[in-house]
């Protein structure tokens, strides 16, 4: 079982980072005030822990222990949660995240957090001092860049495997060719429809008898 001290440290770091970003973002603070009183529970699987995000008038409180009514509860792995948080629009289908309760609250909070420029270096510095904070933030950035690079490589390799090896998906060139043919077919159908309409509207030949 995790020691509450560690969870409190994680909550404090997250809270510092989010509220540090909110300090310079009055628009997000204004949006946040409308969510005051709501509680979002983020239930992570692996590692198994739950964080509670509680918007207040000008800040977000992050807690590891909460007793009360939760507005929205999310359940999923950390990568699935991060992916959901970073996506432009809230799309739960296939996200690997289960949602219970109000999705409206989730959508509003997701937009606020996604728009924030979170300064992880400041958060770490406040907890550990200047030097350790800077080095920690550099390490985090390095890990982030590495993960980003691995993600692009993985996407490319997966695409090649599905296309070339399994032939379950068409290659990009084939797909583009197919789209061009569909476009041409649609244009030809439009022209045919216009011609038929013109023929139908033309006056019938006069009977001279």
């Amino acid at each position: 079982m995790a020691d509450p001290t560690l969870l409190s440290a994680a909550c404090a770091a997250l809270e510092t980072a989010i509220n540090g970003a909110l300090r310079y973002d009055p628009g997000s603070r204004y949006a946040l005030a409308r969510l005051a009183g709501k509680v979002l529970a983020v239930e992570l699987t692996q590692p198994s822990l739950t964080l509670y995000l509680e918007p207040q008038s000008d800040r977000i409180r992050v807690a590891g222990h909460f007793e009360g009514e939760v507005t929205t509860r999310l359940r999923g792995s950390p990568p699935a949660m991060l992916s959901l948080l970073r996506s432009d629009r809230l799309n739960l289908a296939g996200s690997g995240v289960e949602v219970f309760g109000s999705t409206g609250t989730l959508e509003q909070l997701q937009q606020i957090i996604r728009n924030l420029e979170i300064d992880w270096e400041q958060a770490l510095t406040e907890m550990t001092g200047d030097l350790a904070g800077h080095q920690g933030a550099e390490a985090l950035r390095g890990v982030g860049n590495w993960l980003s690079g691995r993600q692009q490589t993985f996407e490319r390799l997966l695409g090649e495997y599905l296309t070339e090896e399994l032939s379950t998906t068409p290659a990009r060139a084939e797909l583009e060719h197919f789209y061009r043919e569909v476009d041409e077919l649609r244009l030809a159908a439009d022209r045919l429809e216009a011609r038929l309409a013109k023929n139908n509207s033309a006056p019938a030949p006069r009977d001279n008898d």
Partner: peptide, 18 residues
Amino acid sequence: GGIHRLWKRFTVEVAAVR
């Protein structure tokens, strides 16, 4: 080492004050 702040933080959470 600053950890007393985390102990107090957890206490505030468990207090569940409204």
